[in-house]
Structures are given as C-alpha cells and as structure tokens.
C-alpha cells in the first residue's frame, strides 16, 4: 500500500482512479484507512474519494473471497438464462451480489458484460472463464471448488 502511494507522490486528481484500482488490486478491496490515506496524498476530502469510489461498479468495500465469482448479466447471457444461474449461485452459496461468504471462501459479483457473448451464459471464477453454464453445471463447479 505504501509502495503504491509512494509511486504516486507527485500525482494529481486524474490519477485518483488508477490509484484506487492499484490499491484494490493489491488488497482485494478498499478499506476505510486506504481511502483516508489516498485523500491525504491527493489533498482531497475523503468524501470526494468515497464519492468517486462508490460511483464505479469495480470498487468494493468488502474483502474478496478466495474464489471470486463474476456472473455476466449481459443481454446475450440474459436471453440464454443467466438469471437462473445467478439465482442458483445465490442459493448454493447463500450470499447475494457484492457479498462474501462468512468463511471467506466465496464472493459474488454481477458484472454488466464480460464480452464473451458468443459463449453465453458465462461466469468467471478468479479470472477463469466458464462457458455455457447451466444451473446444474454450476453446482458441479462449486462442489469442485469446495473440495479444493
């Protein structure tokens, strides 16, 4: 965290989003402390930082789970049944969008479109794509992850 801030010592307002992204990349989420420190670095009120961070879907304020699941809810995925996939995931993992399970193993995120519409419906687990998923194949995928 310190290293990142050190790198942006001379930075101005237009570096705010890249800084937030790098911090999130490193720590998995944006903690309150991080927001305060970034505010001090850029000489901006924390409220402004928070305003920017909450505007964008990418930023999260809770730690990620060990397996971070992104569910694509684009048009093509919707037409081919991604709503059921999401419902199934919420049911099996017992968490909702933008939540992390209590044991820290799973977190769920709904994204607008991953851009793999040819393979709809798609989910991505820790960056690895799973194509043409169905509510039954989801169960298998999750069970496999649980065993790991």
């Amino acid at each position: 965290m310190k290293q990142i801030l050190e790198k942006y010592k001379e930075a101005e307002r237009d570096s705010l989003i890249p800084i937030l992204q790098e911090v999130q990349e490193k720590e998995g989420y944006l903690s309150e402390n991080a927001l305060v420190e970034i505010g001090e670095l850029l000489n901006l009120p924390v409220s402004k930082i928070f305003g920017v961070a909450t505007f964008y879907n990418q930023f999260r304020f809770q730690p990620k789970g060990k397996h971070h699941i992104q569910v694509c809810r684009g048009t093509a995925c919707h037409v081919l049944g991604s709503a059921n996939v999401l419902q199934e995931l919420e049911k099996t993992l017992k968490i909702k969008n933008e939540e992390t399970s209590r044991d820290g193993n799973f977190s769920l995120e709904v994204v607008a479109c991953i851009g793999a519409c040819g393979l709809a419906p798609v989910i991505s687990i820790n960056g690895e794509f799973h194509a043409k998923v169905t509510s039954s194949s989801i169960k298998e995928i999750i069970d496999n992850l649980k065993e790991k």
Binding site: R13, D14, I17, L20, G51, F55, Y56, Q58, F59, A112
Partner: peptide
C-alpha cells in the same frame, strides 16, 4: 492507457472525460 472502472455511462463522451480527470463519470 486508462482503465475504466465499470460504469456504463462512461461510454458517453463527456462522462468519459470526467472519468479520465478522476471524477465521478457524470
């Protein structure tokens, strides 16, 4: 290269400019 942060409205020209400037993408 500037990486977006997941806001559909940032495809709109002026919102995109705000986003590059480090503001809310309005």
């Amino acid at each position: 290269v500037k990486t977006g942060a997941g806001a559909f409205v940032c495809g709109e020209e002026t919102a995109l400019i705000n986003s590059i400037e480090g503001k809310r993408g309005m």
